[in-house]
């Protein structure tokens, strides 16, 4: 340890106090019952049908939402690049400005738009299309989740595409590549770091966004986040809640290991 690294002392103590110890606390609760006796029951509870179903739904929803975010974000980034919007300071600001309005209020407004007598069905009726009863459905919930996390995916991919040297794209064009080849052979492989950090930033929160599920699906759909929240707030079985949280954490770590060995650096740190 040299002298300069001592500067990190206060934060390392902080991390031990507020990241490592709480982490151990949750493990402790997960592995004991109300009487303090050691048990695996809280972890195995994940395999009870209710919990298993919530977990399956969560993974499904998170998977589809992540894929939709990717499919929406890439064309946007490419369109922005086409129109020369890269490197302009307002580009990113326009994307993250909505974050300054509380997300619950934004979701409520989105719900108003999607509701049975809302703006969307109004437009549908003008266009002569049949109305869609979207409110309180799984589709509405997924629209809500995509709405929540799409900016993160866009910013992640944007940052990694911005790191690709224009010369490299021109070189590919020069060697005979058309727009599609340039995208699949050059831009996509070179923006994988941003894509991966985007996936981490969208997938994990999607699984646990219990507020979004409550608002957009009207409490009809239980994500794993809803179950955990209820164990702590309503049922007050902290041991069971901790057990499910630990399983969730393992899941998150596995998906992290699967997607990347690098920092989630591409997304948020470059916003400002």
């Amino acid at each position: 340890m040299n002298k300069r690294s001592l500067w990190s002392g206060p934060y390392i103590l902080w991390m031990i106090g507020f990241t490592v110890i709480p982490f151990c606390m949750i493990l402790h609760y997960a592995l004991t019952d109300r009487d303090g006796a050691f048990t695996f029951r809280n972890l195995l509870a994940m395999f009870e049908p209710v919990h298993l179903k919530a977990m399956t739904v969560s993974v499904e929803v998170a998977f589809f939402c992540t894929v939709i975010c990717i499919l929406l974000a890439y064309p946007l980034v490419i369109a922005m690049k086409r129109l020369g919007l890269f490197g302009k300071s307002y580009t990113i600001l326009v994307l993250i400005l909505p974050m300054w309005i509380n997300f619950i209020l934004r979701l409520l407004a989105l719900q108003m738009i999607l509701s049975n007598n809302g703006v969307l069905n109004h437009i549908f009726s003008i266009l002569g299309l049949p109305p869609h009863e979207l409110a309180n459905t799984r589709t509405a919930m997924m629209i809500g989740i995509v709405y929540d996390y799409l900016p993160y995916m866009i910013v992640s991919i944007y940052n990694s595409v911005a790191d690709i040297d224009d010369d490299i794209i021109e070189a590919a064009r020069d060697l005979g590549a058309g727009s599609l080849t340039v995208f699949f052979r050059i831009i996509l492989p070179l923006s994988v770091p941003g894509l991966l950090s985007g996936i981490v930033m969208v997938f994990v929160p999607s699984m646990t966004s219990f507020v979004t599920a409550n608002i957009m699906a009207g409490g009809k759909i239980q994500l794993i986040g809803n179950i955990i929240e209820q164990e702590f707030i309503t049922t007050m079985d902290w041991h069971l809640g901790s057990g499910l949280s630990v399983i969730l954490m393992i899941f998150v770590l596995l998906s992290m290991a699967f997607t990347s060995r690098n920092d989630p650096d591409y997304g948020m740190s470059k916003i400002w």
Partner: peptide
């Protein structure tokens, strides 16, 4: 005519090799 339709190739100042491909794949690209 766009660059990919011309019988002209360029060697760029900053080399501009594709960093995710090895030397062979770079040369084989076109």
């Amino acid at each position: 005519l766009p660059p990919d339709k011309r019988h002209i190739n360029t060697v760029f100042q900053k080399y501009s090799l594709f960093p995710h491909m090895n030397v062979e794949d770079n040369i084989a690209f076109g």
